[in-house]
């Protein structure tokens, strides 16, 4: 999978960007691994933090049935 963030020149990952974050979670709502997302370590950490904030705020599910 190509690095979506670098391709679109996205420097910051916002927890409110649900459509962007949805591309980094699988159908069950789990965050994809670094190998699947193709992100750098720094970007992967930013995505993880954003997903966790979005989950807490009810914008993304913790688990998808």
């Amino acid at each position: 999978m190509a690095n979506i963030l670098t391709q679109n020149d996205i420097r910051h990952v916002d927890y409110k960007d649900v459509d962007l974050l949805k591309q980094f979670v699988n159908p069950h709502g789990r965050v994809m691994g670094k190998k699947r997302t193709g992100l750098t370590a720094k970007q992967q950490r930013a995505v993880e933090a954003a997903v966790k904030r979005a989950r807490f705020m009810g914008l993304l599910p913790f688990i998808q049935k």
């Binding site: 910051h12 916002d14 962007l20 904030r53």
Partner: peptide, 19 residues
């Protein structure tokens, strides 16, 4: 109902990418 406070940066963080 729920709230969150966290540190961020001054720049606009929302991605200008169309899904």
């Amino acid at each position: 109902l729920r709230s969150i406070v966290f540190r961020t940066v001054r720049e606009e963080t929302r991605a200008r990418m169309k899904a």
